[in-house]
Amino acid sequence: MDDKSLIETAIRQAKKTINIGLMVMVFCLFWFVQNQFYPDLFQGNDNISQLDSLQNDFVEPPMFELDSASIENGIHIPTGLIVDDGVQDVMTTCGACHSLDLVTQNRATEEGWKEIIVWMQETQGLWDLGDREEIIITYLGKNYAPENTGRRKNLENVEWYNL
């Protein structure tokens, strides 16, 4: 080895050391800045974590069993629901959070029921219904469909009494 190549090797070594040193410094600086000023930079978004845990933890309630003794004239007496395909899915899914009175007193088209489900998913913590969604929407749209009541109905179900 001549002097020239020795010097070149030394310079190369020096450059390498400086580069590594710089990298270490940059990393340290980054680490310092992140820790000091952005401590939650690598934290998961709370909402997303929550959603994840919701979906992982959520276990669909077991299917409600229909007892034929509790059905009269096609109505499931304890809940008031019309007995038809999908009624068990409605009982277990909708009944998980609110009473089923909220179902039986409402009327909507399939599209309208879908909107109600989406609203509950967006604002009220309802989970993804998966395969059950279509069954539920079909059931509701068929059995709890709107009727055109006009601008004012006749007075109905009047119980007459002597004043």
């Binding site: 909220l102 007193q105 409402n106 009327r107 909507a108 309208g112 109600i116 709107p146 055109n148 009541t149 006009g150 601008r151 004012r152 109905k153």
Partner: peptide
């Protein structure tokens, strides 16, 4: 609310 047509969702 119960009189609305088309109906509105919620407690009637």
């Amino acid at each position: 609310r119960s009189e609305f047509n088309p109906p509105a969702k919620g407690n009637q």
